[in-house]
Design a protein around this nucleic acid. Structure first.
Lengths: 351, 351
DNA sequence: ACTGGCAGTCTCTACATCCGACTGCTAAAC
DNA sequence: GTTTAGCAGTCGGATGTAGAGACTGCCAGT
């Protein structure tokens, strides 16, 4: 329970044990550790150290006559030292190259994030994900109305960063194609460069004015804009790839049981759950790691999550991976960090 | 091996056995069947019948002292009679209502298919999927060019059925926004109503002519159109939902092993594999069922696939479900059939 | 042609045993 | 005081055996 009271040797033993366990997946014996170069002491000495570590809750035994396994707290200690020392060495080059290859030169925003999740999966062999920033802070660039039928219009809205969204609007009354063109021209001239949130506010304000001073064209344009912006923000775009890796995780039963697998597959379907789960970790910059029981959701106690935020102007999104607690953290951290940087660069280059 | 030589009673026994096994998941004993109303004979008699059925390859025993389990051939026989008798009773109303609820009144084409796969999953509790028809036969409705920067253009192309596709095009030279508008007007006036394939051919033909008679505007428009249509057809849009149901299938080990699960999860990722898999079954109308070892891919021998085609004008897409061979076929068939009809209606109503 | 009954077969579970892998502890060595 | 070697103790997993239960196949009787 005493904190930070780990001697240098104790720390080295813990680090060695965690590394060994991550590589082998088997409980690590004192004899195994004593054979490792770096700590030149006998297995008996290591046993003492391990007993100490066990008292402090860093490691545990699956059963009396077995080796030691890191606890969540053990992983936490290991990861924290990693995060300190690793800061500099991000894995950008590989990730960025693969992202460019996957997404192409000028990807749509959605394609970029989808590619990012795919690359994260391929490189880490864990479930990769990418979350878009809230749409409401995107910068409005252009809107187009495509007449589908007399009373039905397809709206295409483009925001900065090749961010396209569409919506079909059902009108109460018929509207001429030329009126639609004029409406689009008006809105483009008026609002380009504002955030969608600002646009929404401006539109509502003008609709208020409009009640008194009467202008057919503007009324139509503003009404269309309001309808378009309605309900735009609710579902945050989420891209997930690599669910098949979960089968591997469950197969060599890394504590990833069938029920955990099901939970994760559900999450892949209802992506919004992931957004809610991540909400708490999206403040700080850099990489955050959530290990096992640190998750609020008990179903995920067998999983760890590595997540980094990226910036797109004033907006903030996230990329990351999800895997078993027995995860190759050092690799995952540098890959996720690299992906966040690569995505941000891509977006910067586009604008 | 003799075909069709099944007596009436033998058929009833087989049907009963398959139903029982589908419900219980346990090998069915002769005594269990004799207790079933409908076939009023003793277990000994049934044992004789079962021995016969086993000789003919319709059922098998997991081990000597166990009940019988249907073989793929047994399922096939069961399903074929189902397909004959069930033809009339499709499950449209439920499915259509849920689809409407899920997709909304005027969904984009992609939303419609995505909703269809979701509804199929929810109703059948198996993996649901929906495949779009090849884009090349879609009816061109409208194109818009949105300038992103001096040399970068976002193309938005709308085909009939609220089918929107986008693409960013990188230009070699700068182009004025007004030129883009004119180009769009020209293309819309010229090609609306043709299939994309026809548009492509027409564009290429005119580009040939253009070499001699020179017209700046048209050249730009046609070049843009060509670039837009390039590589549009390659990946067929596929929507899949319900991977989490695979965890359930694997849990009560319906012969769905971890490796099958992995194969299916991979398929969910590389959706094009599903398209290739289905290519063979997309000719006839109505519902097709592929059972276990009938799959070309040996990894899927533990799975069955129920698929129906839907028509959108002259185009043809597919919807269906994938599950363990021990699947509730009668329900799956009527649901998939209903979904195909519902999707087709939706598309008809949109046009 | 059908049925009752019985012997035979195979799985599954429980229980007993053995082996191997570690640990914890203690007493000696440094 | 710290480290080490050695040894007893503990537990899990593999292996073996026995008995119960679940069916079938077959045969003789109706």
């Amino acid at each position: 329970m005493t904190f930070g009271a780990l001697s240098d040797r104790t720390r080295r033993v813990l680090a060695c044990l965690v590394k060994d366990y991550i590589d082998s997946g088997e409980p690590v014996a004192s004899a195994t550790l004593s054979r490792r170069p770096g700590l030149g002491v006998s297995s008996a000495t290591i046993r003492n150290v391990l007993a100490q570590l066990e008292d402090m809750g860093y490691v545990s035994q699956p059963h009396t006559s077995a080796g030691r396994v890191p606890t969540d707290r053990g992983y936490r200690y290991y990861v924290d030292t990693l995060l300190e020392t690793r800061r500099a060495s991000r894995d950008i080059s590989t990730v960025e190259a693969r992202l460019r290859e996957q997404a192409g030169e000028a990807p749509l925003f959605d394609q970029l994030l989808s590619s990012a999740s795919h690359v994260l999966f391929e490189v880490s062999h864990h479930v990769g994900f990418a979350i878009a920033p809230s749409d409401m802070h995107a910068i409005f660039q252009r809107i187009e109305f495509v007449p589908l039928s007399a009373s039905r219009v397809l709206v295409v809205m483009v925001a900065r960063g090749n961010h396209v969204s569409q919506k079909v609007i059902e009108l109460n009354e018929e509207i001429a194609p030329s009126a639609l063109t004029q409406a689009a021209n008006y809105l483009n001239a008026e609002f380009a460069g504002l955030s969608l949130d600002e646009v929404r506010q401006a539109v509502l304000a003008r609709l208020e004015e409009q009640r008194t001073l009467y202008d057919e064209l503007r009324a139509v344009a503003l009404t269309l804009a309001r309808t378009t912006l309605e309900g735009l923000e609710s579902p945050t775009a989420v891209f997930i790839d690599g669910a098949s890796s979960l089968a591997d995780d469950a197969e060599d039963a890394n504590g990833v049981s069938m029920s955990t697998l099901r939970t994760l597959l559900r999450m892949v379907e209802e992506k919004q759950r992931l957004v809610r789960l991540l909400d708490a970790y999206l403040d700080g910059p850099g990489v955050a790691v959530v290990i096992g029981a640190e998750h609020p959701d008990p179903q995920l106690h067998a999983c760890s999550l590595v997540v980094a935020t990226y910036r797109d102007g004033a907006r903030r999104g996230a990329v990351g991976v999800i895997g078993p607690t027995r995860m190759h953290y050092s690799r995952a951290i540098s890959v996720v960090d690299g992906a966040a940087v690569a995505v941000a660069r891509f977006l910067r280059d586009q604008n």
